[in-house]
């Protein structure tokens, strides 16, 4: 993907992120996640029914990379099964961490494939995926 297109997608998701703003609803699972070494701090809440992700919301203060990644992750996960979501998140994390990953699973998230060129931004890009992981773990434990 062309660098300009990548930048435009990131910027659009930063300036107009999807589903920003939380709500009071006990059917959602809420988790906070923040980077100890920087100032990104986001809350994310997810609702799943019958193993399918129905909705994800977020709020918080974070940089362009972190906010946009949160927005794109939310778009990528809504409507997916929990197993699919887990695969997407694992592949996304592998991409950011410069490991082998399956490009075809990532869709728009591919815009962060060069983020490893700026090592100090990797943690910004990873932050929302940590929130998703935490929530998926809660849901898995609830099922048991």
């Amino acid at each position: 993907m062309d660098k300009e297109i990548k930048r435009a997608i990131i910027l659009d998701n930063y300036q107009n992120p999807i589903n920003k703003g939380l709500k009071k609803d006990d059917s959602y699972i809420l988790k906070n996640t923040n980077n100890e070494s920087c100032i990104d701090n986001i809350d994310m809440m997810m609702k799943a029914e019958n193993g399918v992700i129905k909705d994800i919301l977020f709020d918080g203060e974070a940089c362009a990379i972190c906010t946009s990644a949160t927005s794109i992750i939310i778009k990528s996960l809504i409507g997916k099964t929990l197993d699919e979501a887990e695969k997407i998140i694992t592949n996304y994390q592998d991409m950011i961490n410069e490991k082998d990953y399956d490009k075809d699973l990532l869709g728009e998230l591919i815009v962060y494939e060069d983020i490893c060129m700026q090592p100090n931004r990797k943690k910004c890009a990873l932050l929302p995926s940590n929130a998703v992981e935490k929530i998926l773990e809660v849901i898995r434990n609830e099922k048991k």
Binding site: C38, I39, E61, A62, C63, A64
Partner: peptide, 8 residues
């Protein structure tokens, strides 16, 4: 602009 973006 988020302060960290300015700093970067």
């Amino acid at each position: 602009v988020f302060s960290q973006d300015t700093s970067v």
